[in-house]
Simulated assay, not measured.
Amino acid sequence: MREICVIGGNRYFGKRLIKRLLDTGDRVTVINRGSSTPPETVVHLIADRDDEDSLRAALGSRTFDVVFDQVCYTPRQAEIARRVFAGRTRRFVMTSTVEVYEYEHSTALVREEAVDPLTVQVDLHAPWDDAEFRDAHYGEGKRQAEAVLARDPAFPFVSVRVAHVLGGDDDFTGRVDHYARRIRAGEPIAVPAENHPATYVYVEEIADFLAWTAGQEFTGPVNANAYGTLTTDDICAAIEHEVGGTAEFLPVEVGATSPFSFARSYAMDNSRAAELGYTFLHSSEWLRDAVAETLGFGKEVR
């Protein structure tokens, strides 16, 4: 029986990850601030992950085979996690994001080496505690968090760079609903004048992939995304299939655009995952089901 710790992440694909670990027979410990209660079969520790003393006190002498950090957004949080979990785990898996590639302007599928954490500059003194600053620098915060964890050669670190996630009747982002409301009402959907495709991942599959990493030995960054890029048109076509109506797009040169429209490419290459032994699905295999689940027209597959 493996001892596995999950920091935060008790909703959306985090709760699915916990279920998969429990189904495998792992003993799971969840650490959060107490705002959400995990399943009764897990060990629940209440701590503020931003407070090193609080985290250490909650953990006591516990050690783990694997730690999943679902809520590491800043280099400061990464620094605390690295100090606290050094020597406590053989494997530390951070949920990162496609947004780490925000400076890599390319129309080609981007590979992990495009952002080497060892070359990323870290600024621990930036106002990371300010929520507005943190939200505005989401991708940079994740980049720097990866850099902090990667620079300790004795720390067994993995960063799973997750594509934009679709699916589930518990999708709290409101992004799919944004399009559905406008399509139903016949309202225009703002997109960049040059609207780029992106890679996505199904909510059930990212939970599968994270659970799979628990039993692996590789370290470093790995892209987690389906085969096949999607455009705003593709997603809206799937929504049209559920709600009726026709999407009307309004190209804009400057100003706010809709959630799944991008002025630059966010398309990742998942060949490292395949080389390591995990093959993702193609987006065409789950897109309609994912949209139906989110809009309440279907049931989750798992």
Rank of each mutant, 00 (worst) to 15 (best):
A86C: 11
F280C: 07
A147I: 08
E240A: 06
E79Q: 12
D135V: 15
N223I: 05
I206P: 01
Y103S: 15
R143H: 04
A126H: 06
V28C: 06
D171R: 01
C5T: 05
S271K: 11
S61N: 14
T294N: 11
A185P: 01
Q70F: 12
A290Y: 02
A136Y: 06
R143I: 03
G14Y: 03
E146K: 01
L166V: 13
Q77G: 14
T74C: 05
R161N: 02
R288C: 06
P251Q: 10
F218G: 00
S35Q: 14
V115W: 10
Y278W: 10
R184A: 07
V252Q: 07
F249L: 08
F260D: 07
V43E: 15
F157V: 03
K19Q: 14
F155D: 09
R88Q: 12
G277K: 00
V71A: 11
R184L: 06
S265G: 09
A58R: 06
S261H: 03
D152Y: 05
F68Q: 10
V203L: 01
N32A: 09
I7F: 15
L295K: 00
L287Q: 05
D123M: 04
S159L: 07
P75W: 04
L230V: 09
A224E: 01
N32K: 03
A57V: 12
P156H: 09
D48S: 13
E205Y: 06
I18N: 02
M1C: 09
P192R: 03
E104Y: 13
V66M: 03
M268C: 03
V30C: 10
V148S: 07
A180E: 06
E187C: 01
V254Q: 15
P221W: 04
F85G: 09
L118Y: 03
R11K: 15
L45V: 06
